[in-house]
Design a protein around this nucleic acid. Structure first.
Lengths: 150, 150
DNA sequence: CGGAATCCAATCCGATACTG
DNA sequence: CAGTATCGGATTGGATTCCG
């Protein structure tokens, strides 16, 4: 069952580009989308389905983010061309954010990520808890971490 | 063409879980795999196709990583149950790393990421360069960032 | 409202040195 | 070989204040 898992997929990763040729390309991409808040922001914009979102609306939709971090993240994504920033010269100020076409192209990645998180997120949390517990109560029988239950 | 992009996909993200219910699950997942070196390490292990990799082999395969960071990353993934660490009590020491079944389940996510990076990575780089240039030479006509060329 | 600026604490990260 | 330990600089992140 696990041989199926490791044979059928990731065909792309196994294409022989040089051993770390794909690593370098991925590095710069990760510098954009692997930031702490990048994915949450992107997901909110995807969920908006093209409807422009204002700054405060975004901030409230993402629990735990501060205004500083949100600003920084949005600027970075604007620079990468993932997000369009539209400023209305009115008072009080009004700024709207939407995904660009390039931003929408991330959809499959975000979807895969969200699916994985929904399926295995709690398993990961359990494993981490057990790992901590095993460190404290040392010398206990070293168990295999819980395999996914499906 | 862009309406196709934004209508056909991300069905999962639009399922109505509460507005940020999916955000919270994703947060903990991202804390594991959105770290600077997590994806590069995972990709190397996937590319090994189940063959155990030793520490130094892993380190050499990932350009720019230091041994300190690699150790930290491997420990974190071991705690999450993504990676199995096998220590041989011999001298000189020998430690082998392999993906667990849970680790293999990340395959679709990594594949999606690698594909996106290969397709749009250079577009992102170009956009960033243009964005920087536009900041320096200010007052120029504000252009739309380059849409993906395919 | 949507930031920018400042201050300050925490933490990260690289380099180096040492060890079983 | 596969780490651990330590140090100092760099980066990150929150809280607060001010501005157009």
């Amino acid at each position: 069952m696990d041989t199926v898992t490791r044979s059928a997929k990731a065909a792309f990763l196994r294409e022989d580009l040089g051993p770390c040729a794909c690593q370098r390309r991925i590095r710069s991409t990760l510098d954009v989308i692997a930031n702490k808040w990048a994915v949450p922001v992107l997901i909110e914009l995807v969920r908006a389905e093209g409807e422009p979102l204002r700054f405060t609306r975004l901030a409230r939709a993402i629990p735990g983010i501060t205004q500083k971090e949100l600003t920084k993240q949005l600027r970075e994504m604007e620079a990468a061309g993932l997000v369009r920033r539209k400023v209305y010269p009115v008072v009080p100020p009004k700024v709207e954010y939407t995904l660009t076409e390039l931003g929408w192209s991330l959809d499959p990645v975000l979807d895969a990520l969200a699916r994985w998180a929904a399926t295995y997120g709690n398993v990961v949390a359990d494993n981490q808890a057990q790992f901590m517990a095993r460190k404290n109560a040392d010398g206990a029988d070293p168990q295999e971490p819980a395999p996914p239950s499906r």
